[in-house]
Amino acid sequence: MTPNLQTARQTETVFRTENLNIYYGNFLAVKDVSIKIPKHCITAFIGPSGCGKSTVLRCFNRLNDLIKSFHIDGKIYYHDQDLYSSEIDPVEVRRQVGMVFQKPNPFPKSIYDNIAFGPRLLGYKGDMDVLVERSLKQAALWDEVKDKLKESGTAISGGQQQRLCIARAVAVQPDVILMDEPCSALDPISTLKIEDLLQELKEQYTIIIVTHNMQQASRASDFTAFFNVQANDKGQRTGYVVEYDRTEVIFQNPMQEATREYVSGRFG
C-alpha cells in the first residue's frame, strides 16, 4: 500500500515491507503488511490495542529477535537491503535505527553517561562533552540539566527522562528513530514538548511513532497507518493494515469505513 504521494514532495523510501507476516511460534500476530516509510517524515501507526503496531515497529530494528519464538515471512527492506537476510548484523541495524520506548528507561547512571553510552560502545574518539551537549540540545533538554550532568538519569522527571532517552538515541546519530508510544506515560505538558521536538527532529531523522492518541497522530505526523485486528474462528487475533496514507487524508477523507469510524472515535 503506497500513500498517495501526488500531493506530497517526492522522497526517498527508508523502509519498505512486502507482504510481511509476523509470527510468534505458530501464532500469526500481524499479516500482510506492505508499506513504504518515506525519509525525513513522521509516520504514525495508530489502531486499537493488540493490533500489532508495536510488533511491526520492533521489526524495523530487529528488536523482536530477542523473543525466541518470533519469526517473519515476507520482506523488509531498509534502503534496499533485505533487513532479515542472514548476513545482516542486527546489532549494526539497531545502531542505525534508534528506539525510544513507551516507559522512559534511562540507565541507572549519570545523565552524562546515559548519553555517552552509545558513542562509547561505537568507539567514538572525539570530544564527548561536545557530543553530549549537542545531543541534549537536540532533545531540548540541555537547559534543564546542564548543571546536573553528573546526577542520575533516573532522578529527573518522567518527561525529562523521556527526552533524555531521545537524546541518548540521537547521540549515536541514527538514520531512523522508532518511538513506541513515547508519551503514554507522560503528562500533557511533557507530551506537547515531545511533539514539538518531533518536528525539529524530522529535519534530520526519519521517525516512526506508535501512538494510542489520535490527536497526537493528526497533529504531529505526515503519514498515518491505521491498523486493525481481526479474530479467526479459534479466537486468535491477527493485526493488519487497513489503510495507509497522508495523515490529513486518513483523518479527513479516509477510503475505508473502518478508518472513518476509528478516527471519529466511534470505534470499539
Binding site: Y78, E87, I88, D89, E92, Y124, G126, L131, Q173
Partner: peptide, 10 residues
Amino acid sequence: VLPRRSLKRV
C-alpha cells in the same frame, strides 16, 4: 563523528 558502517555481519 560516527561514520555510517555497513549493516553486514563482520
